[in-house]
Amino acid sequence: MRWQELDQQPCSLARSLAVIGDRWTLLVLRDCFLGVRRFEHFQSRLGVTRHVLSDRLRKLVENGVLKKTPYQERPRREEYRLTEQGLALHPVIVHLVQWGDRYLADGRGAPLIHEHRDCGERFQAQLTCTACGEAVGPRDLRVRQNPAFGDEALVEAGVDVEDVSR
């Protein structure tokens, strides 16, 4: 599988990585969720080159994760805002941050503390079943093949069809 062909794979993770699977892209998204919107602010916070930042922002806009919104007319200036599709990445970013807080933090702990705005308590993200409300862990899921995807597409993507239902 080639990196440039990820978006063509019959795998939702591969297709997602084709859009957001880059360290600079994830840091841009982190900053978006922290309220950063303008190119110069992204650049000063991240220390990334203008070329790389322009490329990542363009890709996020083209894929519908961010949208450009004008904030000044003369000269025209635009800022980047999360779309509905971009906002849907919030759980992904929060889970990655909390994984880093747990396994990669130094002796001082998490650099940022996430609190639930309504109750003021520290927030710990978890997956829950939308039907019953129970917490869901890796051993609580069953993965089945979607009949709309034939075995050929999965085999081509390197998925062992026999292991899909285990």
Rank of each mutant, 00 (worst) to 15 (best):
L53Q: 11
L53N: 09
L53E: 06
S54F: 14
S54G: 09
S54V: 12
S54H: 12
S54K: 08
S54E: 07
D55Q: 10
D55G: 13
R56E: 04
R56Y: 06
L57E: 03
L57K: 08
L57Q: 05
R58T: 13
R58Y: 05
R58P: 00
R58A: 08
K59N: 08
K59L: 05
L60N: 03
V61Q: 06
E62Q: 11
L66R: 02
L66H: 01
L66P: 01
K67R: 14
K67G: 07
K68N: 08
K68F: 02
K68R: 14
T69Q: 14
T69L: 11
P70T: 15
P70H: 12
P70D: 15
Q72T: 04
E73G: 07
R74F: 09
R74P: 02
P75D: 02
R76I: 11
R76H: 04
R76N: 04
E78I: 10
E79W: 01
Y80K: 02
Y80A: 02
R81P: 00
R81N: 15
T83N: 06
T83E: 01
E84R: 09
E84N: 06
Q85C: 04
Q85V: 06
G86C: 04
L87Y: 09
A88S: 11
A88T: 13
L89P: 00
L89A: 06
H90R: 09
H90P: 01
H90S: 13
P91I: 10
P91G: 11
V92G: 03
V92P: 00
I93S: 05
V94E: 02
H95F: 12
L96R: 14
L96D: 02
V97G: 03
V97I: 05
V97H: 05
Q98C: 06
Q98Y: 04
G100C: 14
D101G: 05
D101L: 05
R102G: 13
Y103S: 14
A105E: 12
G107P: 02
G107F: 08
G109H: 09
G109W: 04
A110D: 08
P111C: 08
L112V: 09
E115D: 13
C119E: 06
C119I: 13
G120Q: 03
E121F: 05
R122C: 15
F123V: 01
Q124V: 15
A125L: 06
A125F: 05
Q126F: 05
Q126T: 09
Q126L: 03
L127Y: 05
L127C: 10
A131K: 07
A131N: 12
A131M: 07
A131F: 04
A131P: 01
A131Y: 08
C132W: 11
E134R: 15
A135G: 03
